[in-house]
Design a protein around this nucleic acid. Structure first.
Length: 581
DNA sequence: CGGACAAGCTGA
DNA sequence: CAGCTTGTCCGG
């Protein structure tokens, strides 16, 4: 043999979970490193891949072909190993993680690393949040609970002053804000994914979920902002969570990991040490909360009782949240009282606009007529956003905008003082004085095990929009359950009320974090569940709706069982830690 | 994944 | 038994 280098390559094709060996051409022999992107000829076609190992002994009796092309730098060796771990943890393929860990455009060389901290020495006396952050960063695993009105950037700043930090944010807007603020005080910032190479060389990397896979030269700390936010978790399988990837990464690197959140998840609380501001300071960072006890209101005023009307008629900017689209979700005939049902499948029909009734189950449409008596007046038993918008407009005597999830025309009409929309619309709003939850019970009672946490997360987002008590921020919460811990937590600015009640419930019901769950669905789900069996401590629930739930005492048992099960042919989705069940 | 090839079905 | 479908295996 001629002693040329041999590279072991993982193909960028998640369906091919195998490594192939190639000869490294002399021309690129010096620059090829583990993690680099390459192109190879495989079974007559060209595919991309990653160098997983160099100078390996190829299997005997195979004629090696040369790499077709060297395509530049890729994930660092620590990220290759992290991808292997994540593939186990979320029952996915390493290739899908390595894609996320690779630069968008070809990177052939890295710039020189940035000085970790280029700002004025000291950078001013740290405030209470800075001191709390410093305390947090002295621990390997910490959770900093900051009220909604407090800018979490101070935690990222405290970390960045210690060295190159990885900062993960749930939204691009927040990542931009954090990066801008760090930039302004002299931190060397790499914005992921644009500044991939700078981060790899060494800088404080700021980005959204995908940045959990950004290379960071000389990593000194990891910070996850708003750790409770569901945007940190990928919706498609593998359903990996940036918080968990970040925490594992910090652990492997031996650097501190700090999570921030106004409403820390039970997962976070079970993982690290909780640090909070003094009670009075945290309370002040929550808005004033008006709890409207709907049991005492006149039912004829519907979703718009007098107390809300008074707020609406002030000069304040008000956002009304109702998580029901269309005009009405449940209707009854005004004449005979019969509930409006689908004529084809008998399910409830909804009214998306003035002229149509639509069945959400089978899609059948018909005009707005009672099928029992032929009456043409139907009353909305459960109103939707569109209907409420009409009523609000009549009530306040000025234009009221409806905001939807999709940003588009009319989404954030700045001239409109009162807007109404679903929770997705809350993302569209930049500024508000008051956020009113017209029917918060819908969130509290949602048939999902995380409903309470998710409801408090929604309230916290609204709270951030209106600001704390000193800024005059105000929330209106309309509920038939004024004693519910989510309502009480918001009222007292004390998220522990939800965490305590919820953690007891989860333990009792054996839901995460007291257990680990995976949801198995798709045509091949049944075969997969059969092959899985029920090894030590693992149980299978279902099927319901063609989906199975796999439960185990912890992730080691769950992921171990999933990894030991061969995938049957056919489409299969395995969602570890499913967020919405 | 996508091509190669082998084993099974159909029709005369 | 050609001609086609379906399934399984393999790629360096």
């Amino acid at each position: 043999m001629d002693g040329g280098r041999v590279a072991r390559v993982l193909v960028d094709e998640p369906a091919i979970d195998k490594r192939f060996d190639y000869l490294v051409p002399e021309s690129v022999g010096d620059q090829v490193r583990v993690g680099d992107r390459v192109r190879i000829a495989l079974a007559g076609r060209r595919v991309g891949g990653w160098v997983m190992d160099l100078d390996v002994d190829p299997p005997p009796g195979v004629e090696l072909r040369p790499l077709a092309r060297w395509s530049g730098r890729g994930p660092t060796p620590d990220l290759l190993e992290l991808a292997g771990w994540a593939a186990w943890r979320w029952a996915g393929r390493p290739a899908s993680f390595l894609r996320t860990a690779s630069p968008e455009r070809v990177v052939t060389g890295l710039p020189s690393p940035a000085a970790p901290w280029a700002g004025p020495s000291g950078g001013g006396e740290p405030g209470p949040v800075g001191r709390l952050a410093a305390e947090a960063l002295a621990r390997p695993r910490s959770v900093v609970r900051l009220p909604p009105a407090t800018d979490p950037t101070d935690v990222a700043l405290a970390a960045a002053r210690r060295g190159h930090t990885l900062v993960l944010c749930p939204t691009a807007a927040l990542a931009r804000h954090v990066a801008d603020r760090l930039d302004r005080v002299g931190v060397a910032v790499a914005r992921h994914p644009h500044d991939w190479a700078l981060g790899a060389a060494g800088a404080t990397v700021v980005g959204t979920r995908a940045a959990a896979w950004a290379p960071v030269g000389h990593l000194a700390a990891v910070v996850v902002i708003d750790e409770h936010d569901e945007a940190h978790q990928q919706e498609q399988a593998p359903t990996w969570h940036a918080r968990d990837v970040a925490a594992e990464r910090a652990r492997r690197a031996g650097v501190p990991c700090t999570l921030t959140s106004p409403v820390p998840s039970l997962e976070a609380l079970a993982w690290g040490e909780l640090l909070t501001l003094p009670r009075t300071a945290e309370r002040a960072g929550w808005p004033v909360v008006d709890v409207v006890d709907m049991r005492r209101e006149d039912p004829r005023t519907g979703l718009l009782p007098p107390r809300l009307v008074a707020v609406l008629r002030s000069d304040r900017r008000v956002v009304c949240i109702l998580n029901r689209t269309g005009r009405a979700r449940v209707l009854a005939c005004a004449a005979c009282g019969e509930l409006a049902r689908c004529e084809r499948c008998d399910a409830n029909v909804t009214q998306p606009d003035e002229h149509r009734l639509v069945c959400l189950r089978c899609g059948a449409e018909r005009p707005v007529v009672c099928s029992a008596c032929g009456g043409v007046r139907l009353k909305a038993l459960r109103q939707g956003v569109t209907r409420v918008r009409d009523e609000l407009e009549a009530l306040v005597g000025e234009p009221v905008a409806e905001i939807s999830g999709a940003p588009g025309p009319g989404a954030g009409d700045p001239g409109t003082r009162v807007v109404v929309g679903t929770e997705a619309g809350l993302h569209q709003v930049r500024r508000a004085d008051v956020v009113a939850f017209l029917d918060v019970d819908q969130e509290l009672l949602a048939p999902r095990y995380r409903a309470a946490e998710q409801a408090l997360g929604l309230v916290a987002r609204a709270a951030r929009l209106v600001g704390g008590k000193e800024r005059g921020g105000r929330l209106v919460v309309q509920t038939f359950l004024p004693q519910h811990e989510v309502v009480q937590a918001a009222l007292h600015g004390d998220p522990a009320r939800v965490a305590d009640a919820e953690s007891r419930r989860r333990e009792l019901l054996r839901f995460p974090p007291s257990a680990a769950l995976a949801e198995v669905s798709g045509p091949a789900a049944e075969a997969f569940v059969a092959a899985l069996g029920t090894p030590f401590g693992v149980e299978v629930l279902g099927p319901a709706d063609g989906r199975w739930l796999v439960r185990a005492p912890d992730h080691a048992a769950l992921c171990g069982a999933l990894a030991a099960t061969e995938r049957p042919p056919g489409r299969l989705r395995v969602a570890v830690d499913p967020p919405r069940i």
